[in-house]
């Protein structure tokens, strides 16, 4: 039994199954982060001041408590990884599997770098006793960035698979492998996209 349109697009919709599937999944993710953002808005407009009191100290700006340079670095890392991801896919289209390995490897490493920076950031917060339970600002910060971090890890698992064991498919079913890389890319760009909104709304505003 074969499922139709796993590789070639269906004529009337113009897409193959996995592409539609991943976009539907991303639509659901939009609503997930949308729900969290609405919670953020809801709590923030209800708060008399933001970030407000933490350990008896009053903060006027998020940037006074969060590490903006590190977050900027992470933004650059993530944007860069989006570019390498799309270049990995383009390399496959050009039949350059060696380049694909290179760019996909870079994408994976960028994800790792993002997490390492994040770990330093969290670590210094914990050192100062800035825990999620201390205030709603910190709770939002840890929940949103933490959930985003989980999405980064999820993306790295997929990318790692396509770099390692999953890459065997390039030999047997190249067209389907290109599709898989494209679809994984769509997810990875979405993770980048969420961060693009998280960065200013949490660190800067």
């Amino acid at each position: 039994m074969d499922i139709p349109y796993t590789i070639t697009p269906r004529a009337d919709t113009g897409v193959y199954n996995a592409k539609l599937g991943v976009w539907l999944f991303l639509a659901s993710e939009v609503m997930l982060f949308g729900g969290l953002f609405s919670a953020y808005i809801f709590l923030r407009i209800g708060a008399p001041e933001w970030p407000g009191m933490i350990h008896g100290e009053s903060f006027a700006r998020a940037s006074d408590i969060l590490n903006v340079p590190l977050a900027t670095l992470n933004t650059m890392i993530l944007i860069g990884s989006s570019v390498t991801m799309v270049l990995a896919w383009a390399s496959l289209l050009l039949n350059r599997f060696d380049r694909y390995r290179l760019y996909m490897g870079l994408t994976f490493l960028a994800g790792l770098a993002f997490l390492v920076v994040k770990a330093f950031e969290y670590g210094s917060k914990f050192e100062h006793g800035y825990l999620p339970a201390e205030s709603n600002f910190l709770a939002i910060y840890f929940t949103l960035t933490g959930l985003h971090g989980l999405h980064v890890i999820g993306g790295m698992v997929v990318n790692g698979y396509l770099l390692g064991p999953g890459a065997k498919m390039w030999k047997t079913k190249p067209a389907q492998f290109i599709n898989r890389v494209e679809v994984a890319g769509l997810y990875w760009h979405f993770v980048d996209l969420v961060w693009i909104f998280l960065f200013p709304t949490i660190y800067l505003l």
Partner: peptide, 19 residues
């Protein structure tokens, strides 16, 4: 998904002590 978001927030409230 918004309920999932709410579930995550309630889990944070219950396990990590957020408010």
């Amino acid at each position: 998904p918004p309920l999932e978001a709410a579930g995550v927030l309630q889990l944070m409230d219950r396990l990590v002590g957020t408010s």
